[in-house]
Design a protein around this nucleic acid. Structure first.
Lengths: 116, 116
DNA sequence: CCACAATGATACGGAGCCGAAACATTCGCG
DNA sequence: CGCGAATGTTTCGGCTCCGTATCATTGTGG
């Protein structure tokens, strides 16, 4: 059975999680960065700059810069593809997995405490 | 009964909605702006700059600037409080309500199409 | 081999947001 | 009245992100 939400639940959940993120997080990710991170961790590899750019419907420099930023945070890693050295394969990290695990916990907790 | 999500559902929902926002939206709101907008529309008025700053745990200029931006987009409106002219009351707009209604629709649609 | 395509990174000018501090206006209270 | 507190705005320098164009490296096909 699919997950059926009422309009009140949908916006209430988005509100509660956004609020939680804003309140707690000193260094929050951009919506684009968040989407890239989730794509990397929730969709089977391999992930490339070009592939992510096509999926998110943004230009390649957007992906490169986001990977620079999140790479510096330790959330992702980049490795050259040895079969085709033009490609860069984006790798997951323990820190990235932990980051998203915490995000999932927040979503679950806020969903549980929603009114009706 | 409360809304119980599995970790997979929680992150999958966040992923799908973020992706949808990034792909479609030319001019996306900051996480802070989103939190402010949702706070204004989901919590009973009145809303003031000071109150929002305290709720979101940010400084007042953050609220002022976000209201400038979202006001220019027509998503919110500002009116001086006649009882205490130091206060500014933040008002909802039709465009803002419509914007959030569409966001709610996206969340509901993505939740419905989540795997297991 | 060599010209061309593909991939990702970089340069550059512009725009938006940030935190801290200073500011203008209004209220309250002695 | 007058002075300090409260409220919201503005200013400042700095940082990040953006889009376009260009570059460097690597693969591919004739």
């Amino acid at each position: 059975m699919s997950l059926e939400l009422t309009p009140s639940q949908a916006l209430g959940l988005w509100h509660a999680v956004s609020l939680s993120q804003v309140r707690s997080e000193a260094h929050d990710l951009t919506l684009r960065q968040m989407a890239i991170l989730l794509q990397i961790y929730l969709v089977p590899p391999p992930h490339t700059v070009r592939g992510l750019a096509a999926t998110l419907n943004v230009t390649k420099p957007v992906i490169t810069r986001a990977l620079d930023t999140m790479g510096a945070m330790g959330l992702v890693d980049r490795v050259r593809d040895d079969k085709d050295r033009r490609n860069v394969i984006i790798k997951r990290t323990v820190a990235g997995a932990l980051y998203l695990e915490k995000l999932g916990d927040v979503v679950i907790a806020e969903a549980r405490e929603l009114p009706y």
